[in-house]
Amino acid sequence: MGKRPARSSGDDAVTESRRRFLKTAGAAGALLAVGSGQGVASTDPSPEGATREAVGGDGTGGGSTGGDAARSLTSHEISSCTTITSPGTYEVVGDIASTGSGVCIDVQADDVTIRGNGYTLSGDGSGTGVGANLGATSGGPIPIRENVEVEDLTVTGFETAIGYEEVTGGRVEGVTARENGTGVSLRYGVTDVAVRDSMLADSGIGFRTVGSPNVYGGPENNTFEYNDVESNDRGIWLGLITIDHELSCNRIVGNRGGVLHSGGETRGHVYDGNVICSNSEYGLRNVDNPPEDGIPAFEDVVEATGNYWGASDGPSSIGDPATPYEDPVTGALADGGGDGVSESLDAGVSNVHFDPFETSSLPSAGRR
């Protein structure tokens, strides 16, 4: 069976043109309805929603700081909720408790590194722990931030632990995000950001991306590697208009759903060297969209060879059909005992290229 033709992720000139537009044009009309809220599950055309819902407000506060403890930053130490408006390296010097629906550590500058030094940022179930450029798309000219880094920080008890919006470059590394609505969220025009060596657990969603069908576009060319994603309602959710992400050497284990791609131009992703197992409903579910009301079908094949699915004989087929799905490239059947892969719009054919696969677990996968 032949491989389906690769889909282009878009011309670089078009992407640059969009960014120039965002810097000079305000959001108008229906775009204002998108708002600045981090809780944007309703914008995805997914057939299902997370069953564990975050409580509280919208998680961004339109760029406001979290709680009454907020203050303007005048030094390079962080001891309470604050707004960062200048480049530099900022050291967290103690545990911080945040209340309210705003952003506790609100980054509104380029070239910022936040060193958590092992301390904990805790919320009351609402708001965002660390936000980079959140509220950028809430109206008016849209700023593009560059090179925002967060490292060695524990974040717990927020609607969103760490959220980036319209940021180019940076990393989230050595972070532990537990008991949040979402662990790490990349929204709209986030590009070239690496999320690595982190623990995303016990939350509604471990790692999430989401774009917009309007001028904002979606996350592109980000990296997700050497992470532990476990015991979430959904481990990874790549949402609307998410393009060309590399996900390698992660442990995606013990979630209700392992990985969900929710259609709507979510394409071009590569999975390699991951352990995807013991997820109760599916390993990798890739949603294709049939033609509807004059809109052509959307189909994409996920490149996911070289992964371990929890059994030596490879993945199963979601729903345990009488005839297992075929690999779209090799024709191998997804008839193993591992986590399930999904079916394409072509009956009996998977939209996950899973063969060849690893026959035993990968010690190199997960947080180092």
Rank of each mutant, 00 (worst) to 15 (best):
76 H>G: 00
79 S>I: 06
83 T>D: 04
70 A>F: 11
84 I>F: 02
93 V>Q: 04
89 T>Y: 00
94 G>Y: 03
68 D>G: 12
64 S>F: 00
66 G>W: 02
80 S>A: 12
58 D>Q: 09
74 T>S: 11
67 G>I: 12
88 G>C: 06
87 P>F: 07
71 R>E: 07
84 I>V: 14
78 I>D: 08
68 D>A: 15
72 S>E: 05
81 C>A: 11
89 T>N: 08
91 E>F: 13
64 S>K: 09
64 S>Q: 07
61 G>F: 04
88 G>L: 06
82 T>A: 10
58 D>Y: 02
58 D>V: 05
78 I>G: 06
59 G>R: 03
95 D>F: 05
74 T>N: 06
72 S>N: 10
68 D>C: 07
81 C>W: 02
92 V>R: 07
61 G>N: 12
69 A>G: 13
66 G>S: 15
78 I>Y: 06
62 G>I: 12
75 S>A: 12
90 Y>L: 01
89 T>F: 01
82 T>L: 02
71 R>N: 07
74 T>C: 01
74 T>V: 09
91 E>H: 11
65 T>F: 09
94 G>A: 15
72 S>T: 12
59 G>S: 04
87 P>Y: 07
75 S>G: 15
61 G>A: 12
76 H>N: 13
80 S>I: 01
81 C>E: 00
92 V>N: 06
84 I>H: 03
95 D>I: 06
90 Y>G: 04
67 G>A: 14
76 H>Y: 08
64 S>A: 10
65 T>H: 04
71 R>Y: 06
73 L>S: 11
90 Y>Q: 01
84 I>C: 05
70 A>G: 15
66 G>D: 10
70 A>M: 04
85 T>A: 08
74 T>L: 01
68 D>T: 13
84 I>G: 05
82 T>I: 11
79 S>V: 08
95 D>A: 11
89 T>S: 15
87 P>N: 11
63 G>C: 13
92 V>M: 14
67 G>W: 14
83 T>G: 13
86 S>N: 04
89 T>W: 00
67 G>Y: 09
76 H>Q: 13
60 T>F: 09
72 S>W: 08
78 I>W: 05
64 S>E: 07
71 R>D: 04
76 H>E: 07
62 G>H: 12
91 E>D: 11
94 G>W: 02
88 G>P: 03
91 E>T: 08
77 E>I: 03
67 G>V: 08
58 D>F: 00
60 T>W: 10
81 C>N: 07
78 I>T: 08
66 G>Q: 14
71 R>S: 13
62 G>W: 11
84 I>N: 03
92 V>K: 09
87 P>W: 00
